[in-house]
């Protein structure tokens, strides 16, 4: 039984339809990557799953609860967390306050979760009282992920976690994601670094023009000639 099930999602901005019926599922503890060219609707899919956009068609269920059209602040209560691609931290708040906001709904578990987050991202502990605006890009990405982990989610949605990061940080971020996943937290990530993403994920979806194009085990996708040529920038 899958944890997240999105079926035939139709969504977009105003009159512009971006997704024309996309389906995907994520199992418990699984790591799934969504790849595809720019403008194929990857971010739109994430926003729609998380209730920031209301789909005009299709259904999203999480742990068999229908969360289609639910506002974001209710979706987080279900055990789903989301790290957007850009603007994913509160820049004018301190690191510690960012984590507190992540645990806004559960102040009772804040202390425990914050310790866990600092354990996962030791760099942040030293800078807990610094404003996020004074942090480096890589550190900000850690804050963003730490904030999303505060409510003990069962599934973490990551929208391009390595976008805009220097190459040295990209491997580190993937290692952190793998570490999070190893704690039993399922991960659904959208990535530009398609090859790296598939190498870390168990399964992958290739979107193109707002539709599912390829679906399968990561290894199968990496081995697929057409996927490699069109979306991975080279031969398998």
């Amino acid at each position: 039984m899958s944890l997240l099930e999105a079926s035939e999602i139709v969504s977009g901005y105003g009159d512009i339809e971006i997704l024309h019926g996309v389906s995907l599922s994520v199992g418990r503890g699984e790591m799934v990557a969504v790849i595809g060219p720019n403008g194929c609707g990857k971010s739109t899919l994430m926003k729609t799953i998380f209730g920031l956009l209301t789909p005009t068609g299709g259904r999203v269920t999480f742990k068999d609860t229908d969360i289609t059209g639910m506002p974001p602040h209710e979706i987080v209560c279900q055990g789903l967390s989301y790290v957007p691609q850009a603007d994913n931290t509160f820049l004018s708040l301190t690191v510690q306050e960012n984590l507190a906001m992540g645990a806004f709904l559960r102040p009772d578990i804040y202390a425990v979760q914050a310790e866990m987050a600092y354990g996962l991202f030791p760099d942040l502990k030293a800078r807990r009282n610094a404003k996020v605006s004074s942090l480096s890009g890589g550190q900000r990405q850690m804050v963003a992920m730490a904030r999303a982990l505060m409510l003990e989610p069962q599934l973490l949605l990551l929208d391009e976690p390595t976008a805009g990061l220097a190459p040295v940080f990209v491997e580190a971020v993937f290692a952190q994601i793998a570490h999070v996943n190893s704690q039993g937290i399922a991960v659904l990530m959208v990535e530009q670094n398609a090859r790296l993403a598939l190498e870390h994920a168990q399964r992958g979806y290739v979107l193109a023009s707002g539709e599912n194009r390829f679906t399968g085990e990561s290894s199968a996708l990496l081995a697929n000639e057409e996927v490699a040529r069109l979306y991975l920038g080279g031969a398998a």
């Binding site: 506002p71 602040h73 957007p84 931290t89 509160f90 004018s92 708040l93 306050e97 906001m101 806004f104």
Partner: peptide
């Protein structure tokens, strides 16, 4: 205060506030 911090968070980044579970 917790509400005060949430107000600052909402002023800073309303979308992220909603994603964090703050009812804006």
């Amino acid at each position: 205060s917790k509400i005060g911090q949430a107000l600052r968070a909402t002023a800073d980044n309303p979308d992220l506030a909603r994603i964090s579970g703050i009812n804006t």
